[in-house]
Amino acid sequence: MIDLSAAELLAAYRSGALSPVEVMQAVLAHAAAREGELHALCAVDAEGALAAARASEARWQAGTALPLDGVPVTLKENIAVPGAAYRLGTAATAEGATADFEAPPAARLREAGAIAWARTTMPDYGMLSSGLSSLYAEPARNPWNTAMTPGGSSAGAAAAAAAGYGPLHLGTDIGGSIRLPAGWCGLVGLKPSHGRVPIKPGYAGRVAGPLTRTVADAALMLAALAKPDARDPTQLPPGQVLLRPLELQKLRIGLMLDAGWGDAVQPEVAAAVTAAARTFEQAGAVVEPLAGFTTREMADGIDRFWRMRSWLDISALPADRRAQVLPYILD
C-alpha cells in the first residue's frame, strides 16, 4: 500500500478497502526500514501521526471526510509548524530553536485532513542543490542509487517521495529546489507561480509546492495549498485548481535543449528529452525548437541576489554561530 497514490488512497478509504491507520502504520514501518541509508527525515512524530490517522478513520466512517483526509504528507524543515524544530538545515541555528507559528502551506494541508507525520532534511538555508548540511551527519541519498544525491534543496522530500514514504511531500523552490530533485529522482515537481501558494516567512522568489509520484497527486496537493492566507501580501487572487484532460491535438510545445549558458546537455539526457517530444508529436502535438533565452549575465545576476539575500541572514548571526555554517556556503 506504500506505493499507492493519494488519489488511490482516497478511493480506498472511501470504499472501506483501506484505513488511514493501517496506511500510516505501513508508511512509518517502511520509512524506519529505509532511513538508515536514505537520511531523508529530520523528525518523525509517529504518535501524533497515528492519533491523526485514528481521527481521520472516524471521519471517513461518519461520512465527514476532508479533501485529503488520512493521506500521509511530509514537510520540508523550513516549513514552520508550532513547537517543531526550526533550524533551517544548519548547525548555525541555535539548538532547541522551534517555530512559534504555522506556515500557510502546513495549515492548508492540515485543514484538508492530510497527516503531516515527518519533516524532511535540507542543506544549510536551502542554499545547495544537494542535501549536504552542517546540521545532519549524513546528507539525503537518492533511493535509485544511494551513492548519488537526490538533488536539493528539497533533498529529503525528494528522497522520501521516491522511496515511497507516502504519496505527498512538500518542498520549497527559488532556483530549482523542487524541480532539480524531481528530475533527479523521477518525480513530479512543481514550482507554482509566485503567490499562488501563500507562504510565511516571505522571501522573494520562494514558493512552496508539491513533490509527488503522479501528476494527479500534484494537482490534488496544489488544490489544497492554493487556498488564500492573509499573512502573505504577495498572494494571488484565489483560483480553483482542477485536474483536467489535456488536448494534445495541435498543442504547441517548445523543445529547448540548450538553456543558453552553463554546461552542455549530456547526450543521453538530450536523447531522452527528444524522445519524449517525439511521443507528444505522435499524439498530435506540434513540437517546435526553442532557443535558449537566458544568458550567463542573467545567471550571474540571480546568483548575486541569492548571495546577498543569504548574507543578510548569515551576517546577523553571532560570530560563533556564523562559523558553523557549511563552508561551501559561508565562503
Rank of each mutant, 00 (worst) to 15 (best):
Y165M: 11
H39A: 14
G205N: 04
V23L: 08
L317F: 07
L50P: 03
A161S: 15
A12L: 06
L248R: 12
H39C: 10
G209T: 10
G156H: 06
V23F: 09
M221L: 10
V265A: 15
K227S: 12
A103E: 08
A91H: 00
G166W: 03
R14T: 08
A114Y: 03
T274I: 04
E297D: 15
E57I: 01
Q324E: 12
L128T: 05
L246T: 12
G205V: 05
P238C: 05
Q25W: 01
M122P: 01
S154V: 10
H169T: 12
Q61L: 12
G262K: 14
I178K: 13
H39W: 06
V44M: 01
E281M: 11
T146E: 06
A58V: 05
E8P: 02
G113Q: 09
A11W: 00
Q25Y: 01
A218D: 07
K76G: 07
D3F: 04
A218P: 03
D100E: 12
N78M: 13
L225R: 10
L317P: 03
A316G: 04
G205P: 03
G96F: 04
D331G: 15
G262H: 14
A316S: 14
G126W: 02
Y165P: 01
L68H: 02
L246Y: 09
P82L: 00
S56C: 03
A219K: 05
G156F: 04
K76V: 01
L225S: 09
V325D: 07
V273P: 06
A103F: 04
R108N: 08
A159W: 00
L50E: 11
P82V: 11
E297R: 15
S129F: 14
Y13F: 15
H169Y: 13
G292R: 13
M1L: 10
R244M: 11
V44F: 03
P105F: 08
V273N: 10
L257T: 10
S310N: 14
V269M: 10
A223C: 05
A107D: 04
T64A: 13
G131R: 09
A107I: 00
N142Q: 05
A33P: 08
L243E: 14
Q282S: 15
G292W: 11
V81A: 01
R59M: 07
A84N: 00
R87T: 00
A319K: 08
L211Y: 05
P318N: 02
T98H: 00
A137L: 13
A103P: 03
A159L: 04
A103I: 08
A65H: 03
G16W: 04
L225Y: 05
A116P: 08
P181S: 13
V73Q: 01
